[in-house]
Design a protein around this nucleic acid. Structure first.
Length: 643
DNA sequence: GTAATCACG
DNA sequence: ACGTACGTGATTACT
C-alpha cells in the first residue's frame, strides 16, 4: 500500500493506494464499515471528457469519507476492478460531485448501469447549485469542487484539476494529453484523485445544513436528481448522425464561405470576421455607419449589414436600394463559416464509433435553472433553414416528434401573478394577443395592434422598456408608451407582482424564490429582471414536471433533447401518432388555474424534416421527399402533410 | 482574457 | 426618481 497524508482544514487526512490483494481486502473491509456509517464519496479519473471516443479509458475509481480516501487503479484490471465493483454494488449511498459524468463513465467503461448507481447517488453539485447557481465570475460561490471547498470547508483547498495541468507540462504533456498519459503511480495525480473524494465527503453535510437553513425543500433536491438521471439516459443514447450528409454539408459550406470571402477580399477585407476591417471598407465605399458597440467600435452586425445589402430579416431582396456587394458577401461568408464550424464540423468531431453524437446536457446551467446543451450546442441550431438539423436522425425505424408548449412563459406569468383577465382568456381558449389587443385598442384593433401587444407581452416577460419594444415591433414610441400604460391597466397584477417580488428579494438578500422553492439570485442594478427570472424559472419547472410525466408514461427511452419549451423524441414510425398524443398529454396540465398546453408535430427520419416549410409554415412535399428518407419511402405522407 | 458576433428559446 | 429586453454556447479577432 502506498499512503499519502495531506492537510485538509487543519486536519491530517490519509490517501491510500492499494497495490496488493491484501491492500484491496483492507479497502473492502473499510468500505463495509464506512457504508454503515453513511454515504461513500465516489469519483473517477479518466483519459478526458469525451466519454464515447474510441480511445477513452477509465483510469482510477476513488472512494472515501471525510478522513480517508482510496484510489483504486482500475486500469490495472483483475482484482482492482473486482474490488471497485464490489464496493459499487455493496454500498447503498454514494456522494458524487457532478454525478452525471461519473454515472456515464461507469456505465460505459465499467459496465455499471446508471440505472443502478443513480438512485443511490446524492450529487453535491446539484445541492450547491440550488444554494447559489452562479459561477464566481458572475458573483456567485461557484459550482466546481474547488471553489465550493474553498468557500465552505478549506480556504487552502488546492485546485486539483488546475494544478495537474502544471504537472502535465512538467512531464512533457499538455492539458489535453496529460490525463491519458500521466503515469498511474504519479504521486500528485494519486494525491489529488484522493483529495477530491475527501472534499466531496466534507462538502455534503455542510450543503445539507445550508439547504435546511435556507428553507430549500428536500423535494426540490430529489426532483433535480430525477431530472439529472433522465438527462443522463438521453446523453447515453445520443442521436444518430447522418455522417455522409454532414460531410457533404461541411464541404458545401466551406466552399460557400470561401466563395464570398473572395468577394470580400476585392474590397480590401482580408477577414470577414474582423469588424474593424469590414467597417473601414464600408466607410470607404461611402456607406454611413452610425450604431456603436458597447466598447465604442462601429457596429457591423447582421442587423446593420442586412439593410445595406437590401435584404430583409429573411434575407429576401427589399428593392429599396442598390445592394452593397461587400455587405452581402460578408453576411453570406460569415453565416456559412459559422454554420460549418459551430454545427456541421462539430457534429462530425463529436461522433462516436456507432455514428452517434452524445450531447452534454447540463440540467441546471442558467441561474434561472434552465438547462443547456453543449458539444454540440443542440439547443441553438438554425431554425430558419432545415439544412443543419437535417444531419440528425431518429433511431433506425423511427421518426422525429417534436412537442412544444404553447406560449408557456406568458401562461406561466399569468399563473404566477394570478392575472385575472389573462387567465379567463386562456381558459376560454382565446388567442391571447387578440384578446389583449381588444382590451388595449378596442374591438376594431388591427394586425399592427396585435403585433404591438405581442411585443409588449414579450417586454413583460423579459423586462424590456418602451424603446426596445418600439425597436422590435416597429411601432412609434408614443404609441408604444400609451399602449404599455393601457396594458398595465388591463393586467394590473403583473405590475403588482413585480413590485412584490422585488420587495421580497430585497428582504432576503437579493434572492427571489420561485414557486418550486428555487433560489434565483438577482443583480442589485437589474431588479426589474425579477419578472423574467420568475417566468423563466417556472417554465423550466413546467418542462421538468412534463419530463417526470414522460418517464411515468414509459417515454424516457424515446426522448432525445429538452429544448426549454420543447421535447424532441424519436419514436417508432408506425406508432408515431399515438406517441405524439402521449407526449402532448405529458406536456398538458393545470398550473394554478392556467392550462399549460402543448402541440406535437410528427416528422420523418431527420430532425430537419420538421423545418422543411415555406415562409407561411406550410410543409414542402417535394423537399420532404428529396431530403428525408422516410418521406422518400412514404411520399403520400409528404403530400398529406402539405394539404 | 475581452469584445463582438451569431445561433437558439 | 427613472428606466433597463432575459437566459444560454461557440467562434474569431485582437490585446
Amino acid at each position: 500500500m502506498k499512503t499519502y497524508f495531506h492537510d485538509v482544514a487543519g486536519e491530517y487526512v490519509r490517501i491510500n493506494i492499494p497495490e496488493t490483494d491484501n491492500d484491496l481486502r483492507e479497502f473492502m473491509q473499510w468500505a463495509r464499515t464506512a457504508a454503515h456509517r453513511g454515504p461513500i464519496a465516489l469519483d473517477t479519473e479518466t483519459t478526458g471528457l469525451d466519454i464515447y471516443s474510441a480511445t477513452y479509458r477509465l483510469r482510477t475509481v476513488q472512494f472515501g469519507d471525510e478522513r480517508t480516501a482510496w484510489v483504486i487503479h482500475w486500469e490495472r484490471g483483475g482484482r482492482f476492478i473486482e474490488a471497485a465493483l464490489f464496493v459499487l454494488r455493496m454500498a447503498p449511498r454514494f456522494l458524487i460531485h457532478n454525478a452525471p459524468f461519473d454515472w456515464l463513465v461507469l456505465d460505459e467503461h465499467a459496465e455499471f448501469a446508471l440505472e443502478i448507481l443513480a438512485p443511490k447517488t446524492v450529487d453535491t453539485k446539484i445541492k450547491a447549485t440550488l444554494i447559489d447557481p452562479r459561477e464566481p465570475h458572475k458573483g456567485g460561490i461557484g459550482t466546481g469542487l474547488k471553489p465550493l471547498s474553498a468557500h465552505y470547508t478549506d480556504p487552502s483547498a488546492p485546485d486539483t484539476a488546475g494544478d495537474l495541468t502544471e504537472v502535465f507540462n512538467g512531464l512533457g504533456f499538455t492539458k489535453a494529453t496529460g490525463w491519458a498519459n500521466i503515469p498511474l503511480d504519479h504521486p500528485t495525480y494519486n494525491l489529488y484523485a484522493g483529495l477530491d473524494v475527501i472534499y466531496t465527503a466534507r462538502l455534503d453535510p455542510i450543503l445539507t445544513r445550508e439547504l435546511a437553513r435556507l428553507g430549500v425543500r428536500q423535494a426540490l433536491v430529489d426532483y433535480e436528481h430525477e431530472i439529472a438521471r433522465m438527462c443522463s439516459v438521453m446523453m447515453r443514447a445520443g442521436i444518430v448522425l447522418d455522417s455522409e450528409y454532414a460531410s457533404t454539408l461541411s464541404v458545401t459550406l466551406h466552399e460557400e464561405e470561401a466563395k464570398y470571402s473572395v468577394v470580400a477580399a476585392r474590397y480590401g477585407v482580408e477577414s470577414v470576421n474582423s469588424g474593424a476591417q469590414v467597417s473601414e471598407a464600408l466607410l470607404a465605399m461611402g456607406e454611413e455607419l452610425t450604431q456603436r458597440t458597447d466598447a465604442g467600435a462601429l457596429k457591423v452586425d447582421k442587423a446593420v449589414l442586412l439593410p445595406l445589402a437590401d435584404l430583409d430579416r429573411d434575407w429576401v431582396r427589399i428593392g429599396a436600394r442598390d445592394p452593397n456587394p461587400l455587405a452581402d458577401a460578408v453576411l453570406r461568408a460569415k453565416r456559412a463559416g459559422k454554420w460549418v464550424t459551430a454545427y456541421a464540423d462539430t457534429f462530425i468531431t463529436n461522433m462516436d464509433a456507432n455514428g452517434r453524437v452524445h450531447p452534454n446536457i447540463q440540467t441546471l446551467a442558467a441561474r434561472t435553472g434552465r438547462m443547456s446543451i453543449t458539444k454540440p450546442a443542440l439547443q441553438t441550431l438554425p431554425s430558419s433553414d432545415f439544412m443543419i438539423r437535417r444531419a440528425l436522425l431518429a433511431d433506425p425505424g423511427h421518426v422525429m416528434v417534436s412537442t412544444d408548449f404553447a406560449a408557456v412563459e406568458m401562461r406561466v406569468l399569468a399563473a404566477l401573478a394570478n392575472v385575472k383577465r389573462m387567465k379567463q382568456a386562456i381558459n376560454a381558449g382565446e388567442d391571447l394577443h387578440d384578446f389583449t389587443a381588444r382590451l388595449v385598442f378596442g374591438p376594431n384593433f388591427t394586425k399592427a395592434h396585435r403585433k404591438l401587444c405581442k411585443g409588449i407581452g414579450f417586454g413583460k416577460v423579459y423586462g424590456g422598456g418602451a424603446e426596445t419594444i418600439a425597436r422590435q415591433t416597429g411601432a412609434p414610441i408614443a404609441q408604444v408608451r400609451s399602449a404599455i400604460a393601457a396594458y398595465d391597466r388591463a393586467y394590473p397584477e403583473i405590475v403588482r407582482a413585480s413590485k412584490k417580488w422585488q420587495r421580497e428579494a430585497r428582504a432576503t438578500g437579493l434572492v427571489t424564490v420561485s414557486a418550486t422553492g428555487r433560489r434565483l439570485p438577482l443583480d442589485r442594478d437589474r431588479m426589474y429582471a425579477v419578472v423574467n427570472y420568475q417566468s423563466q424559472s417556472a417554465a423550466r419547472d413546467v418542462l421538468g414536471q412534463a419530463m417526470l410525466n414522460m418517464e411515468e408514461a414509459g417515454l424516457l427511452d424515446y426522448m432525445k433533447l429538452p429544448i426549454h419549451d420543447e421535447v424532441l423524441a424519436s419514436v417508432p414510425a408506425k406508432e408515431a401518432q399515438d406517441f405524439a398524443r402521449e407526449f402532448e398529454r405529458c406536456m398538458s396540465f393545470d398550473l394554478f388555474g392556467v392550462p399549460i398546453a402543448s402541440e406535437a408535430e410528427v416528422g420523418g427520419r431527420s430532425w430537419g424534416s420538421l423545418y422543411m416549410k415555406d415562409a407561411k409554415g406550410k410543409y414542402l412535399p417535394e423537399l420532404l421527399i428529396a431530403q428525408d428518407e422516410w418521406y422518400a419511402e412514404n411520399p403520400q405522407a409528404a403530400y398529406a402533410k402539405a394539404a
